[in-house]
Amino acid sequence: MDTNTFIKGLWKDNPVFVQVLGMCPTLAVTNSATNAMAMGLATAFVLIMSSTLVSLLRNFIPKQVRIATFILIIATFVTVAEYLIQAISIDIHKALGAFIALIVVNCVILGRAEAFASKNSVGKSILDAAGMGVGFTFALLCLGAVREILGSGTFFEYQVFGHGYEPWVLMILPGGGFFTLGAWLLLFNYMKERKAAKMQEISA
Protein backbone atom coordinates (compact mmCIF):
# COMPACT_ATOMS: atom_id res chain seq x y z
CA MET A 1 0.00 0.00 0.00
CA ASP A 2 1.25 3.41 -0.89
CA THR A 3 1.04 5.09 2.49
CA ASN A 4 2.60 8.30 1.24
CA THR A 5 -0.40 8.97 -1.00
CA PHE A 6 -2.59 8.84 2.10
CA ILE A 7 -0.35 10.68 4.54
CA LYS A 8 0.44 13.69 2.34
CA GLY A 9 -3.18 14.88 2.63
CA LEU A 10 -2.99 14.81 6.40
CA TRP A 11 0.03 17.02 6.80
CA LYS A 12 2.38 17.95 3.96
CA ASP A 13 -0.39 18.86 1.50
CA ASN A 14 -3.18 19.50 4.01
CA PRO A 15 -6.07 20.95 1.96
CA VAL A 16 -6.78 23.77 4.41
CA PHE A 17 -3.48 24.68 6.06
CA VAL A 18 -1.15 24.15 3.09
CA GLN A 19 -3.24 24.30 -0.08
CA VAL A 20 -5.66 26.85 1.44
CA LEU A 21 -8.61 25.35 -0.45
CA GLY A 22 -12.26 25.05 0.54
CA MET A 23 -12.30 28.21 2.60
CA CYS A 24 -16.07 28.70 2.49
CA PRO A 25 -17.04 25.70 4.68
CA THR A 26 -13.81 26.10 6.66
CA LEU A 27 -14.85 29.54 7.83
CA ALA A 28 -18.62 29.12 7.84
CA VAL A 29 -19.35 25.94 9.80
CA THR A 30 -16.47 25.78 12.26
CA ASN A 31 -18.17 27.69 15.07
CA SER A 32 -18.54 24.47 17.02
CA ALA A 33 -16.52 21.26 17.11
CA THR A 34 -19.61 19.13 16.40
CA ASN A 35 -20.49 21.08 13.26
CA ALA A 36 -16.87 21.00 12.10
CA MET A 37 -16.69 17.24 12.59
CA ALA A 38 -19.98 16.56 10.77
CA MET A 39 -19.02 18.84 7.87
CA GLY A 40 -15.56 17.26 7.63
CA LEU A 41 -16.96 13.73 7.53
CA ALA A 42 -19.66 14.62 4.99
CA THR A 43 -17.04 16.25 2.76
CA ALA A 44 -14.72 13.24 3.14
CA PHE A 45 -17.56 10.93 2.09
CA VAL A 46 -18.29 12.97 -1.05
CA LEU A 47 -14.57 13.26 -1.77
CA ILE A 48 -13.92 9.52 -1.57
CA MET A 49 -17.02 8.51 -3.56
CA SER A 50 -16.54 11.04 -6.35
CA SER A 51 -12.79 10.34 -6.63
CA THR A 52 -13.55 6.64 -6.97
CA LEU A 53 -16.10 7.20 -9.71
CA VAL A 54 -13.97 9.77 -11.56
CA SER A 55 -11.02 7.40 -11.48
CA LEU A 56 -13.13 4.48 -12.72
CA LEU A 57 -14.46 6.54 -15.62
CA ARG A 58 -11.25 8.41 -16.40
CA ASN A 59 -10.78 6.79 -19.83
CA PHE A 60 -14.44 7.23 -20.74
CA ILE A 61 -14.62 10.99 -20.12
CA PRO A 62 -13.37 13.19 -22.99
CA LYS A 63 -11.12 16.08 -21.93
CA GLN A 64 -13.46 18.78 -23.20
CA VAL A 65 -16.37 17.86 -20.95
CA ARG A 66 -14.43 16.67 -17.92
CA ILE A 67 -15.24 19.59 -15.61
CA ALA A 68 -18.96 19.32 -16.35
CA THR A 69 -18.90 15.59 -15.67
CA PHE A 70 -16.91 16.00 -12.45
CA ILE A 71 -19.39 18.57 -11.14
CA LEU A 72 -22.27 16.28 -12.09
CA ILE A 73 -20.71 13.38 -10.19
CA ILE A 74 -19.88 15.55 -7.15
CA ALA A 75 -23.38 17.07 -7.04
CA THR A 76 -24.88 13.57 -7.19
CA PHE A 77 -22.92 12.39 -4.18
CA VAL A 78 -23.77 15.55 -2.25
CA THR A 79 -27.47 14.82 -2.83
CA VAL A 80 -26.92 11.22 -1.78
CA ALA A 81 -25.07 12.42 1.33
CA GLU A 82 -27.93 14.77 2.19
CA TYR A 83 -30.48 11.93 2.10
CA LEU A 84 -28.18 9.64 4.07
CA ILE A 85 -27.60 12.26 6.78
CA GLN A 86 -31.36 12.78 7.07
CA ALA A 87 -31.81 9.04 7.42
CA ILE A 88 -29.05 8.73 10.02
CA SER A 89 -30.07 11.69 12.16
CA ILE A 90 -32.42 14.59 11.55
CA ASP A 91 -30.59 16.49 14.30
CA ILE A 92 -27.26 16.47 12.46
CA HIS A 93 -29.07 17.47 9.28
CA LYS A 94 -30.63 20.36 11.20
CA ALA A 95 -27.25 21.46 12.56
CA LEU A 96 -25.58 21.52 9.12
CA GLY A 97 -28.60 23.08 7.44
CA ALA A 98 -27.75 25.04 4.33
CA PHE A 99 -24.10 24.04 4.31
CA ILE A 100 -24.57 20.48 3.02
CA ALA A 101 -25.51 21.75 -0.43
CA LEU A 102 -22.37 23.91 -0.41
CA ILE A 103 -20.14 20.81 -0.42
CA VAL A 104 -20.68 20.84 -4.21
CA VAL A 105 -18.64 23.99 -4.58
CA ASN A 106 -15.87 22.89 -2.23
CA CYS A 107 -12.87 23.19 -4.51
CA VAL A 108 -10.93 20.51 -2.61
CA ILE A 109 -13.21 17.92 -4.19
CA LEU A 110 -13.06 19.24 -7.75
CA GLY A 111 -9.34 19.84 -7.24
CA ARG A 112 -8.65 16.21 -6.31
CA ALA A 113 -10.84 14.93 -9.15
CA GLU A 114 -8.98 17.06 -11.68
CA ALA A 115 -5.45 16.83 -10.30
CA PHE A 116 -5.36 13.25 -9.05
CA ALA A 117 -8.31 10.93 -9.66
CA SER A 118 -8.54 11.62 -13.39
CA LYS A 119 -4.90 10.53 -13.85
CA ASN A 120 -4.45 7.69 -11.35
CA SER A 121 -5.69 4.19 -10.63
CA VAL A 122 -8.78 3.60 -8.50
CA GLY A 123 -6.85 2.30 -5.48
CA LYS A 124 -4.48 5.26 -5.45
CA SER A 125 -7.36 7.72 -5.91
CA ILE A 126 -9.26 6.29 -2.96
CA LEU A 127 -6.15 6.57 -0.77
CA ASP A 128 -5.53 10.13 -1.91
CA ALA A 129 -9.18 11.11 -1.32
CA ALA A 130 -9.25 9.46 2.10
CA GLY A 131 -6.06 11.28 3.10
CA MET A 132 -7.40 14.62 1.91
CA GLY A 133 -10.75 13.93 3.60
CA VAL A 134 -9.17 13.12 6.93
CA GLY A 135 -6.84 16.11 6.58
CA PHE A 136 -9.79 18.39 5.85
CA THR A 137 -11.73 17.04 8.84
CA PHE A 138 -8.65 17.48 11.05
CA ALA A 139 -8.22 21.09 9.93
CA LEU A 140 -11.90 21.89 10.48
CA LEU A 141 -11.71 20.35 13.94
CA CYS A 142 -8.65 22.50 14.75
CA LEU A 143 -10.66 25.60 13.93
CA GLY A 144 -13.92 24.38 15.45
CA ALA A 145 -12.30 23.40 18.75
CA VAL A 146 -10.56 26.75 19.25
CA ARG A 147 -13.65 28.75 18.26
CA GLU A 148 -16.05 26.74 20.39
CA ILE A 149 -13.82 26.74 23.48
CA LEU A 150 -13.20 30.51 23.32
CA GLY A 151 -16.57 31.56 21.87
CA SER A 152 -18.96 29.39 23.88
CA GLY A 153 -16.78 28.02 26.69
CA THR A 154 -17.62 24.46 25.65
CA PHE A 155 -15.97 21.60 23.72
CA PHE A 156 -18.30 19.17 21.91
CA GLU A 157 -20.98 20.85 24.03
CA TYR A 158 -19.29 19.90 27.32
CA GLN A 159 -18.60 22.81 29.65
CA VAL A 160 -14.84 23.51 29.71
CA PHE A 161 -14.71 26.55 31.96
CA GLY A 162 -16.71 27.26 35.09
CA HIS A 163 -20.00 29.08 34.89
CA GLY A 164 -18.25 32.38 35.55
CA TYR A 165 -16.67 32.30 32.08
CA GLU A 166 -17.89 35.11 29.87
CA PRO A 167 -17.92 33.69 26.30
CA TRP A 168 -15.83 35.59 23.78
CA VAL A 169 -18.76 35.82 21.35
CA LEU A 170 -16.64 37.27 18.53
CA MET A 171 -14.96 33.88 18.07
CA ILE A 172 -18.14 32.18 16.85
CA LEU A 173 -18.98 35.12 14.58
CA PRO A 174 -17.48 35.25 11.06
CA GLY A 175 -14.66 37.52 12.24
CA GLY A 176 -13.48 34.92 14.72
CA GLY A 177 -13.23 32.41 11.88
CA PHE A 178 -10.75 34.60 10.05
CA PHE A 179 -8.72 35.26 13.22
CA THR A 180 -8.50 31.57 14.07
CA LEU A 181 -7.65 30.54 10.51
CA GLY A 182 -4.95 33.22 10.41
CA ALA A 183 -3.45 32.01 13.67
CA TRP A 184 -3.36 28.37 12.51
CA LEU A 185 -1.82 29.34 9.15
CA LEU A 186 0.82 31.36 10.99
CA LEU A 187 1.67 28.36 13.15
CA PHE A 188 1.88 25.99 10.18
CA ASN A 189 4.05 28.34 8.14
CA TYR A 190 6.31 29.00 11.11
CA MET A 191 6.84 25.27 11.61
CA LYS A 192 7.47 24.78 7.90
CA GLU A 193 10.05 27.57 7.83
CA ARG A 194 11.82 26.25 10.88
CA LYS A 195 11.98 22.80 9.36
CA ALA A 196 13.37 24.23 6.13
CA ALA A 197 15.99 26.19 8.04
CA LYS A 198 17.05 23.06 9.92
CA MET A 199 17.32 21.08 6.69
CA GLN A 200 19.55 23.79 5.26
CA GLU A 201 21.72 23.71 8.38
CA ILE A 202 22.16 19.97 8.08
CA SER A 203 23.03 20.07 4.42
CA ALA A 204 25.42 22.98 4.91
Binding site: L57, F60, I61, T69, L72, A75, T79, V80
Partner: peptide
Protein backbone atom coordinates in the same frame (compact mmCIF):
# COMPACT_ATOMS: atom_id res chain seq x y z
CA UNK B 1 -20.05 10.52 -21.58
CA UNK B 2 -22.41 13.29 -20.45
CA UNK B 3 -25.62 11.38 -21.14
CA UNK B 4 -24.29 8.13 -19.71
CA UNK B 5 -22.97 9.70 -16.53
CA UNK B 6 -26.09 11.86 -16.22
CA UNK B 7 -28.24 8.76 -16.40
CA UNK B 8 -26.07 6.94 -13.90
CA UNK B 9 -26.23 9.89 -11.48
CA UNK B 10 -30.00 10.13 -11.84
CA UNK B 11 -30.33 6.42 -11.05
CA UNK B 12 -28.07 6.80 -8.03
CA UNK B 13 -30.09 9.72 -6.64
CA UNK B 14 -33.45 8.06 -7.25
CA UNK B 15 -32.38 4.81 -5.61
CA UNK B 16 -31.00 6.61 -2.57
CA UNK B 17 -34.22 8.60 -2.33
Amino acid sequence: ALAGIGLMCALLIVSTY
